[in-house]
Each structure stands twice: as C-alpha cells, then as structure tokens.
Simulated scan of single mutants.
Amino acid sequence: MIFDLDGVLADSEQLWDRLRREVVAAHSGSWGPGATEAMMGMSTPEWSAYLVEQLGARATPEDIAEHVIERMAEHYTADPPILPDAVPTVRTVAERYPTAIASSAPPRIIRAFLDTTGLGEQVGTAVSSEQVGAGKPAPDVYLEAAAGLGADPARCAAVEDSASGLRAAAAAGMTVFAVPNPHFPPPEEALALTHRVLRGIARLPDALADLAEEP
C-alpha cells in the first residue's frame, strides 16, 4: 500500500500554497491564474523553477526552495498539520500490507512527518519525487516506491487526493483510491482513473479488504 503525503495524511496543500505565495510576493513576483493547480505534484526543483521562471520571483530556485522548505519544517515542528484519522489508518493498513509513502514533498518534510507521527517503523520505504526523474503526474515516484517495497506496481494500491497524484498512480499501473482534497478537488476525468472514491482516509482499510475479496 502506497500513501501520498500532502492532502492525504497531512493537511498541508494549503500551507504549501500560502508559503509559495508569500515567497513570490517577497521577491517581487506575481501570482498567476492557475499557478496553484499547475504546481500540485511538482517536485521541489520543478516548483521552485516555476516560481522563478513563470511567476517572476527574483531569486534563484535553490534559494526559493530553501526558504519555503525551512518554513514548512518549522510548521511541522510547532504545529504539525496531521489530518484526523491519518495515523491510525496507516497503522491499521501497515499491519496487513507492506506500506510506503510516495510524495512530492522533499525528503526533509517526509522525515519530519514520520518523526512527528512515530510512523517510521510502519512505513517500509518513503520516496520523494526529488529523488526520481520527474514529479507527478509522471509515475516515477510511485514506481520507485513499489521497487522499495519489492513489489510489482500492478499489485500495489495507492491513495491520492489530487489530479496529478491520481494520474501518477494510475500511470504506474496501480489500483488507485481517491480521497479528494476539498480545497483543490480533482476533476471528474482524474477521478475516473480510480478504483473507488472514499469519503475520508478512515474508510481505506475496509476498501482494501473489499478489494482483496474481489475476483
């Protein structure tokens, strides 16, 4: 079982968005229509370059990324944005299936999440899109997570909240469950790629049990 992080286990999509907007404004850039949606699923090198090249932030992508990630890490330390039911759901699923995280968040933030929640022992492998060829909607991060589990991607399930994440997991050949992000809901064509749409992460264990009973 492979979990996305932002929007599935952590209520962090809005926080990423706010921090990026702040850094663009602070560096004389201008937020454009559709920028939020365009960056969802991007790896750190991709979104930091987007802020500079597309939104006009006057800094290097490396400096932009360092600033935003530092601020996000501070939030995880002071007030971790863990979603309700996320931790018990991961624990329940990990009792039955090998479990991984495949996230667009940088490794530092994934580690902060695992340290904050104490889920390090339950999550067998954690992969950031920084560590692979491309961010979501490319399937790279999901394929790498499956490899880390020693599993055939076609025998893996993934849970995602965003359009780019749903497309990435589907492109990897996985069975995809959607827990739509209420702040940035995915379009119907992305939801059509999923096995089932769930009303909350707490429904995942039962959905997996149902899947295991299907012929």
Results as ranks from 00 to 15, higher is better:
Ile110Met: 00
Asp161Lys: 11
Gly148Ser: 10
Gly41Phe: 11
Met39Phe: 10
Ala26Lys: 06
Leu114Asn: 06
Thr194Met: 09
Ala86Thr: 14
Asp85Ala: 15
Ser48Glu: 07
Tyr76His: 09
Ala86Tyr: 05
Pro81Phe: 03
Val123Tyr: 05
Met39Ile: 15
Pro139Tyr: 04
Arg71Pro: 15
Cys156Ile: 05
Ser48Gly: 11
Val127Trp: 00
Ser104Val: 10
Ala163Ser: 11
Arg21His: 06
Val127Ile: 15
Ala163Arg: 06
Val90Trp: 01
Ala134Val: 06
Arg21Glu: 08
Tyr97Val: 09
Leu143Lys: 01
Leu83Trp: 09
Pro84Phe: 13
Val90His: 00
Ser104Met: 03
Glu46Ala: 00
Arg21Asp: 03
Asp115Gln: 12
Thr116Gly: 11
Glu188Gly: 10
Ile201Ser: 12
Leu9His: 03
Phe184Thr: 05
Gly7Arg: 12
Ala209Gln: 02
Leu211Thr: 09
Glu22Lys: 07
Asp115Asn: 13
Asp6Phe: 10
Val23Asn: 05
Gly150Met: 02
Arg96Lys: 06
Gly165Ile: 06
Ala25Ser: 13
Ile2Cys: 10
Leu51Asn: 08
Asp206Cys: 09
Leu9Ala: 06
Gly124Lys: 15
Ala169Glu: 07
His27Ala: 14
Ser128Pro: 10
Pro137Gln: 00
Gly200Pro: 12
Gly124His: 07
Ile201Asn: 13
Gly148Asp: 10
Pro98Thr: 14
Pro88Ser: 12
Asp11Trp: 02
Pro185Cys: 04
Glu53Tyr: 04
Gly150Ala: 15
Tyr50Cys: 10
Ile69His: 15
Gly29Arg: 11
Pro182Thr: 12
His75Phe: 14
Ser48Trp: 00
Glu22Ser: 06
Thr175Pro: 05
Glu66Pro: 05
Ala100Met: 04
Val176Asn: 12
Pro107Cys: 04
Met40Lys: 15
Ala57Cys: 04
Asp210Arg: 11
Asp85Pro: 05
Leu193Ser: 02
Gly7Gln: 05
Leu83Ser: 01
His27Met: 08
Val8His: 02
Glu13Trp: 00
Gln122Pro: 05
His67Ser: 04
Ala172Gly: 11
Ser48Pro: 02
Ala73Ser: 09
Glu46Thr: 00
Pro80Ser: 00
Thr60Arg: 00
Ala100Thr: 03
His183Thr: 07
Glu74His: 02
Ile69Cys: 13
Ala147Lys: 05
Ala178Ser: 10
Met40Asp: 07
Gly173Gln: 15
Arg203Tyr: 13
Ile101Thr: 04
Ala26Trp: 04
Gly124Leu: 03
Val176Cys: 13
Gly150Asp: 11
Glu130Gln: 02
Asp85Gln: 15
Ala26Glu: 08
Trp47Ser: 03
Asp152Ser: 11
Ile110Cys: 05
Leu19Asn: 03
Met174Phe: 13
Glu144Trp: 07
Phe184Gly: 06
Val87Ser: 03
Leu55Ser: 04
Asp63Phe: 01
Phe3Ser: 02
Ala190Trp: 14
Thr60Asp: 01
Arg203Val: 07
Glu22His: 12
Gly200Ala: 14
Pro137Gly: 12
Ala212Met: 03
Asp4Met: 01
Leu55Pro: 03
Ala146Phe: 04
Glu214Val: 15
Ala26Val: 07
Asp4Trp: 12
Gly148Arg: 08
Pro61Ser: 01
Asp6Val: 03
Asp17Gln: 04
Ser30Ala: 07
Met39Cys: 13
Glu46Leu: 01
Ala25Gln: 03
Gln14Trp: 10
Ile82Gly: 14
Phe3Val: 10
Thr36Arg: 14
Ala202Pro: 07
Arg58Leu: 03
Ser129Met: 01
Pro88Tyr: 08
